[in-house]
């Protein structure tokens, strides 16, 4: 256990050095929060634009909150795919990490911790800007802290495990890894009903959304933090059912991701793709 902790710590430290050493600390913090903050402001701009004609303030706060939490998907889940791309294409060090006694999975888990911290900072900043600057507030007495904390933790587990799957895919598909990472960021934003209820999705996509743990994650975060969800379909579910489905999909996806990562890693090695650079 102590060895595992030391390995995770080392991977996290290395991750921090890689992520941050191209800029001064202040500049890096600005960089880390700039994109999520801009996304939050775009949503606010859209709301301000339609507020005089279409005032659905409560619904909008729900979308804004989910958007703030979506940074975990981009930073952690898809971020692990970027870790593989950077290590292989930019620094050409993936082969050394792979052959080190640490093990790729431990390394990726360690790298994910830095990304979790950065994502948490971005999320808090987006919520803070919403609360203080944009006046997007909610009643703290309505917050169901226990279920909220549980849902939050389940979502983070899903992010990290699906991140392994994304990293595995990036190993197996060197040439398309960058596009795959970018696609997943946008696809999850659209599919999981971050800024609109999944009821508005066309048939087919809606059913696909109901397979994803993040659909339930966003709905649970909204429900337990604000007191209401966004989807009419999911609003009919009792809290316990929503949590149970969130837990079940998270466990299922975690198991699939773990197995899928190992299978793709093995396959990538067999095909000689672990150190196959395609960019420069």
């Amino acid at each position: 256990m102590r060895v595992l902790a030391a390995r995770l710590r080392t991977a996290a430290w290395l991750g921090w050095q890689i992520e941050s050493n191209w800029a001064a600390p202040f500049l890096f913090v600005v960089y880390a929060v700039l994109r999520p903050l801009a996304m939050a402001l775009i949503l606010a701009g859209m709301y301000w634009a339609v507020a005089p004609q279409a005032a659905r303030r409560e619904a909008f706060i729900g979308f804004y909150v989910a958007n703030a939490f979506h940074v975990y998907i981009t930073q952690v889940m898809v971020g692990l795919g970027w870790v593989v791309v950077e290590e292989r294409e930019d620094y050409e060090t993936l082969k050394y990490v792979y052959t080190s006694p640490m093990g790729m999975l431990t390394y990726l888990a360690g790298r994910s911790t830095v990304r979790l911290v950065l994502a948490t900072l971005s999320m808090l900043l987006a919520l803070g800007v919403g609360w203080f600057a944009l006046g997007l507030r909610w009643d703290w007495t309505q917050v169901a802290w226990g279920p909220f904390a549980l849902a939050y933790a389940l979502g983070l587990i899903a992010c990290v495990y699906l991140g392994f799957l994304v990293a595995g895919a990036a190993m197996l598909l060197p040439r398309v890894a960058i596009t795959l990472n970018e696609s997943l960021t946008v696809a999850f934003y659209l599919l999981c009903g971050v800024i609109f209820p999944i009821d508005l999705l066309p048939v087919g996509l809606r059913q696909l959304a109901l397979v994803m743990p993040f659909t339930y994650w966003y709905e649970a975060l909204r429900r337990f933090l604000l007191g209401h969800g966004a989807s009419r379909q999911l609003s009919a579910w009792p809290d316990a059912t929503l949590m149970a489905v969130l837990a079940a999909t998270t466990v299922a996806f975690a198991a699939i991701s773990h197995w899928g990562y190992l299978a793709m890693e093995r396959h990538a090695r067999r095909l000689g793709r672990l150190d196959q650079t395609t960019l420069f």
């Binding site: 279409a54 934003y189 800024i195 609109f196 999705l201």
Partner: peptide, 11 residues
């Protein structure tokens, strides 16, 4: 996603 947000807000 942005078009659907406008739709959700009743714009």
């Amino acid at each position: 996603a942005f078009v659907l947000l406008y739709r959700a807000l009743g714009a």
